[in-house]
Design a protein around this nucleic acid. Sequence first.
DNA 1: ATGACGTTTTTGAAACGA
Length: 258
Amino acid sequence: MRIATFNVNGVNGRLPVLLRWLDETEPDVVCLQELKAPQDKFPHAAIEAAGYGAIWHGQKSWNGVAILARGCEPLETRRGLPGDPDDSHSRYIEAAVDGLLVGCLYLPNGNPAPGAKFDYKLRWFERLRAHAAGLLAQGAPAVLAGDYNVMPTDLDVYKPERWLDDALFRPEVRAAYAALIGQGWTDALRTLHPGERIYTFWDYFRNAYGRDAGLRIDHLLLSPEVAPRLRAAGVDRDVRGWEKASDHAPTWVELTPR
DNA sequence: ATGACGTTTTTGAAACGA
C-alpha cells in the first residue's frame, strides 16, 4: 500500500493538479496540507468522484489538513493536537485507515526567528512530540506524515550555510526533529536513501525547481510496528513541474500489505 | 539586505509562506 503526503498550497486552486496526480499514481492514503479553504469549501464531491473518502479540518485563508483514503472512509481519531485549547490553527488530523493510525500534520513555518512565530513553532513541536510519544506507548502501528517545515540535516538543503538562521533550519528545530526521531520513529525516505540529495519543496522564486535548489521538509515517520513493512519511498518530483503546481511535490512510502 | 512568486481575502493591497 502507498501512503503519500502533499502540501497542495490551496486545495481549490490546485484541484486539477491534485486530481491528475491521484489518477496517475493511485495512492491508498493521502495526507494533504495547506488547504487554504474553510470547512465548507473543501472540494469533497470531486475527491469522492475520484474514488476517495475524506476527512478534513479547514480554516479560512490559511492552514487546513485532510486525509484521503482510496475506496473507503478514514475513521477520524483526532483533530487538533492536545496541549493547547487556545490554538486555533487547523494543523493536525488523525484517522484509522487500513489498520494504520495516520497522523497528518502541518507544522508551523516559524519565521521570522527569533520571535513569537518561532516560539509558537517550538511549542507546537513539543506538543507533537508529547502526542507522538503517547502513540508509541500505545504500540499503535502509526505513520506521522506531513509538512514538518524542518530540514533535518545539511544533506536536506541545497545551500545549508544560507539557511542557518532560518526557522526551518535553526539548531532548536533540527534538535526537536532529532528528538522526535529518537523516540523510535523511522524517517522513511532517509532510511532507504542514506546520503542521497532528495528534495520535496522548491521555491517559486528564481527558477528554484529548474536549478534544483530545493529543501526536504515533507516527511513520513513510521512507528516501530510499521517500519519493517517499508519497501520503497520517493518523491513525485515531476508534479512540481506541472502547470499551476504547488511549491511542494508529493512524497510517499510503499508498505507491504498487512 | 532585499526581493524574486504565488496563494488567500470585505477585490485590491496586504498577510503569509519557506
